[in-house]
């Protein structure tokens, strides 16, 4: 591992150096890191025609399916070892969501140990946390179906 690379990316991500020591390896019960962003509204997304979404929600789709989906399954539907976020977001607030993503969580479901890592030091997650929430909230509210949405304001065509 190169500390130079690590540091450069960390700096780009706008993290204080101290943040690197938070959640480098998942510790259970780590409290949420407050982000400087404005709190999301109850309905942070825009969905038109069933599958056209605002750029932030689209970015959330993309980031989710790069990292989160390896445990939480395609389209937030869960896997054989991690819960469906389409269900979870019906119960937890955006603040709780951010807290769990930043700090991680451990649980035990009928003998199946479940561990979610802390992403506080991961710029690929934390810099996009509101977008990821926006995407998952749209899925959870039933506003957005399965599969790849289209960008309402697309920089490039798909």
């Amino acid at each position: 591992m190169s500390f130079r690379i690590l540091f450069r990316h960390a700096a780009v991500a706008g993290f204080a150096a101290a943040a690197l020591f938070v959640g480098m390896f998942p510790a259970s019960g780590q409290s949420a890191q407050q982000t400087a962003s404005t709190p999301p509204s109850d309905k942070p997304y825009t969905v038109e025609d069933g599958n056209k979404v605002d750029p932030k929600t689209y970015n959330g789709y993309r980031r989710y399916h790069s990292i989160c989906h390896t445990c939480h399954g395609p389209d937030g539907l869960g896997s054989s070892f991690a819960p469906s976020l389409v269900d979870s977001l019906k119960r937890i607030s955006s603040d709780q969501f951010e807290g769990i993503v930043a700090g991680g969580v451990q649980g035990n479901n009928g003998g199946n140990i479940r561990v979610m890592p802390a992403f506080a030091s991961d710029p690929n997650v934390m810099d996009h946390i509101l977008d990821i929430y926006s995407y998952l909230k749209a899925r959870s509210d039933g506003a957005l179906g399965r599969g790849r949405p289209e960008r309402l304001v697309a920089a490039k065509t798909n």
């Binding site: 990316h9 991500a13 790069s66 390896t70 690929n124 997650v125």
Partner: peptide
């Protein structure tokens, strides 16, 4: 769909979404 990612030790370093 590939996109830019940053490296952080011990964190996922994927940079693509796929279906």
């Amino acid at each position: 769909e590939p996109f830019k990612v940053a490296y952080a030790a011990g964190q996922p370093y994927v940079g693509a979404t796929l279906s």
